[in-house]
Design a protein around this nucleic acid. Structure first.
Lengths: 197, 197, 197, 197
DNA sequence: CATGAATGAGCATTCATTCAT
DNA sequence: TATGAATGAATGCTCATTCAT
C-alpha cells in the first residue's frame, strides 16, 4: 500500500545536499552561504532542504559528524597493520592528499567563523579528538616498538603531529606555491625529525 | 572654539573603535559581530561608528592593515641586530607570546569566515606576505652567516617556519592543554630542527 | 477486489478527519493548526488528508456545515413537541451542555480568527442564522401560545436569547469559576426574565 | 551635543503603530495580519516597526495592556461618583458605545485566535479581570446602597453583567440588524432585570 | 486508495547604513 | 562632530499543497 521510504535514496539525497553545502560553505563561509545558494547548488527547492535538515546549522554539524565517522572508519581500517611507523607515514600521506582538495581549507576556515556556537565548538572538538586519538594510538605503538623517541608522551607527540599537519594544510591554503607536490617530501622529513627527536 | 579637527583625537578615537571591534570580532566572529555590539563595546553611537569607518568591513580591513604595519615596524626595529639566528629566535618568542593573547585566535578564526570577500582575502594575503618577508630576510641572513641549512631556499624555509608557527597557534587555540608555557621549549626545538635540517 | 468505493467507509473516514481537525483547531486555533498536526491526530498521511478535503479551509467549512446540519436535525427532532416554552427550555439546556464541551469554546475562538475569509464569514453567518431560525420558530409559537411577552418581535427575542446564550458560553470559556453547574439555574432564570419581560 | 530622544514623539509614534495594528488585526485576524500590512497601514518601513516593538506579538500585548490601563483610568475617573446604580448605567452606556466601534469586535475575535500563546492568554485574563473588578466594585456599592438585589454575590452579578455586555457585543458584530441604536434600550432593560432579580 | 517526498510562496525578523538634527 | 531614529534588502524557515508511486 503505502509507498515505503527508500532509505537508500534518502541517504543519497542527504549526502548530495551535504556535498553542495560543503562547496558553498567553502566558497563563502558559513554565514555567507545562504540556504538559497546551497539549494541552488544542490538543485533542490528550499523546502526540500529543510525536509532533510532541521536548520542550516544542522548541515554543518552533519558534515563535521561525517568527518568523525571517516576518521573512525580509517582507524578501524588501519587496525590490522603491524608496522606503526608505516601507519604514521600513511596518515601523513593522507593529510597531504587532503591538502589538495580545494574545498577542505575553505571549509575549515568557514567553520572557524561559527565557533561561537557551542554545538559547533563541541563538534569541532570531537573531530579534533578523533584525529588526535588515531595519531596517539599509533604513536604509542611506535614508541613501544622502539621506532620513535619516547621522551615525549604519546599525547604530546600526537599534538605535535597535528601542529605539523594542520600548519601544512593552512599554508597550502594560503600560498599557491606551497603545494603537496612540491613540499610533500619536506613534510615527511619534518615529521621524521619530530618523531625521532 | 576648537572646531578645527584634531587629527590626534581623530586617530585615537579610530583606534578605540578598532580595539572594540577586535574584541567583538574575536568573541562572535565577523558576521556574528553586529555593528551595534561594536558600538556598545566602544561606548559610542552607531552614527559615530560610520563617521569613522565607511562600512563594517572597513574596520576589519583596518585591523588587518594595522597588522601589516606592526610587522613592518617590527622589521625596522630588528634591522640593527647582528645575529640572524637570535632574531629568528626572537620572532619565535613573539609568536609564542601571541598564542597567549586570547583575542588573537578568535580574531583569526573570525577573519577566516570572511575569506570569500576578495578585499579581505587580499588583505590577509598581504599580512601573510609581510610576515613571510620578515622571516625570509633573516632566514637568508642566517644562511649567509652559515648558521642554518642552505639546502632549502630562504622562501621555502620561511614558509616552513610559518607552518610551525601557524600550526602552533592553531593547536593552542584548539586544545586547552597545549599552551605556550608547556610547549614553548618544544616549539623552539622544532624550529631548531627545521633550521638545522 | 473491492475496488468499488465504499461510500460508507468514505464518509466515516471524512468524519474521523473532521473530528481530529476539530480537536486541533480548538487546541491551537485555525492558523496554529498545521495540516501536519491534524494528520498526526487523525493517524493519516498528509496525502490522505488532501484526498478527502480540497484545502485546510474546507475542513473548517465542513465542520461549520455539520453544525448547521445538526441544528437543522435538532429542529426536525423538536418539531413534534407541543409546549413551546418547554422547547425553549430544552434549547437552553443544550446550550448549557455545550458550554461544558471543552473543545467547543476553543473552536469558536479558532474560527473567529479566520473571519477575514469571506467564505468562513458566510458559513458562520449561516450557522448563526440556523440557530436564530430555530429559536425564532419556538419563540413565535410561545408568543402565539401566550406563554411569553409579545412586545418584542420573535426575531428580536430570538436575538436576545442568543445574546444570553452566547454571552454565557463566552464567560464560561473566560472564567474557570463560571460553570454550567454553578450558573445553570441563573441562566434559566435570566432567560425566564427575558421572555417574560 | 547628542540628539536627545523626544519621549513625546516616541510615544506618539508607538501609538500610531498600535492603531494601525489594531486596524489590521481587526480586519484579518492576528495571523492573517502580516507585519508588512501593518507597516503599510502605518506608513512606516518594516525596520521601524521592529524599532518600536520586539515582535509582532508584542504589539498585540501592548494593545491589551492599553485596554487594561484604559479600564483602570476609567475606574479612577468614576471613583468620585456617589450613585452606584448610575455608574453601572454609565458602564452599560460605554459598552453600547464600544459596540459601535467597528474594529473592536474584529479585534476581540482576532485575539481569540491567539489564545494558545500563554502570554496572550494571561493578558486577556488580566483585561477581563480589570473589567470584572470595576463592575464588582460598583455592584457591591449598589448592593450596600440597597439599590439592587443581594441574593447573588457581587462577583457573580459582575460576571452576569459581563455575560450581557459581552453577549451584546458579540451579537452586534454578528448581526447587522442588531445595533446599539435599536437595541440599546433593551440592553438597559435587560441589565435592569438582572440587577433587580 | 493511500502515501509522504518535494515544492516554493510567504513570513517574521535582523542589521548595516543613512541622514536630519 | 556626534547621535540614534528610520530604513528596507536580505535571510532562515514554515507549511499548505501536489504528484509519482
Amino acid at each position: 500500500m503505502a509507498r515505503t521510504i527508500d532509505p537508500e535514496r534518502h541517504r543519497a539525497r542527504r549526502l548530495h545536499i551535504i556535498d553542495a553545502a560543503l562547496t558553498v560553505f567553502a566558497e563563502r563561509g558559513y554565514t555567507g552561504a545562504t540556504t538559497a545558494a546551497i539549494c541552488r547548488e544542490a538543485g533542490i527547492g528550499s523546502g526540500t532542504f529543510f525536509h532533510y535538515f532541521e536548520t542550516k546549522k544542522s548541515v554543518l554539524l552533519a558534515i563535521l559528524e561525517l568527518g568523525i565517522e571517516e576518521t573512525q572508519q580509517l582507524a578501524r581500517d588501519l587496525e590490522s597493520h603491524t608496522d606503526p611507523l608505516a601507519v604514521l607515514g600513511e596518515l601523513v600521506d593522507r593529510a597531504l592528499a587532503d591538502s589538495t582538495e580545494p574545498r577542505l581549507a575553505g571549509f575549515v576556515l568557514a567553520v572557524g567563523g561559527v565557533m561561537g556556537e557551542p554545538e559547533v565548538a563541541r563538534a569541532l572538538a570531537a573531530d579534533d579528538a578523533a584525529q588526535h586519538a588515531l595519531l596517539r594510538t599509533w604513536v604509542a605503538r611506535a614508541q613501544r616498538a622502539g621506532q620513535i623517541r619516547t621522551d615525549l608522551s604519546p599525547e604530546r607527540l600526537a599534538s605535535w603531529m597535528q601542529v605539523l599537519l594542520g600548519g601544512f594544510l593552512e599554508r597550502a591554503a594560503a600560498d599557491a606555491e606551497f603545494t603537496a607536490a612540491r613540499e610533500g617530501d619536506e613534510l615527511r622529513a619534518a615529521v621524521d625529525r619530530l618523531l625521532r627527536g
